[in-house]
Amino acid sequence: MDALLIESDTVFAAFWMTVRLTAVSALGSLVLGVLLTAMRVAPLASLRGAAGVYVSVARNTPLTLVLLFTGLGVGANLGVELSDDIATNNFWLAVIGLTAYTSAFVCEALRSGLNTVPVGQAEAARSLGLGFVKTLALITLPQAFRSVVAPLGSIMIALTKNTTIALVVGVSEASVRMREMIETYGDQVIEIFFGFAAGFVLLCLPMGLAFGWLSRRMAVAR
């Protein structure tokens, strides 16, 4: 246990990075996921097609490849600089990769949520004079959201754990710190491993409980 106690500051810093990566990417993937969902049900076939292709590609590519692409492809090769500070730059590249990947899953969850909303809801909205965007934004998507809170929770928990792959872009989040510590404190591998595992459980368990509670609270009675 010595190592974890001695290094507790850097361990907390590393987990704080995990939390920031998760929070920013979660927000980004929810926004992009909603946009993709809207495109997938849009009256324009070209929008539907574009969103469909995007979701298929993002969902079926390993996250490591996606992050390598944003790190090496977008960052190094195309020379996109999001900040002068290398660490900040890498953080945002990782956020882009995680968002691009996770939004595809958010889109699919929301789309299945839309399918649970009875057709009459949209018909009633249209018959009152609401257009496509307002019908989606005010009537169907809010109901879809409420029916997929639990699966969205699973996606967010997966995202939390997926942030460990941000190491390929050079972001020092928890798993990077764990590897460094295992190298320094070779005699305490098991303790270090369980310490970090416990850290992730502590992050994810409350998320699961919170989404479960939200899911029950927000359910739409029909």
Binding site: P43, P118, G120, Q121, E123, A124, A125, R126, S127, L128, G129, L130, G131, I139, P142, Q143, R146, V220, A221, R222
Partner: peptide, 25 residues
């Protein structure tokens, strides 16, 4: 055809459905 003008016209034509279709949320 479907679009802004149709939405405007629908606003002037009320509709009551067999299954009520009140917004459940």
């Amino acid at each position: 055809a479907e679009g802004r003008q149709l939405a405007r016209l629908r606003a002037e034509v009320g509709m009551v459905f067999q299954s009520f279709n009140l917004f459940a949320h």
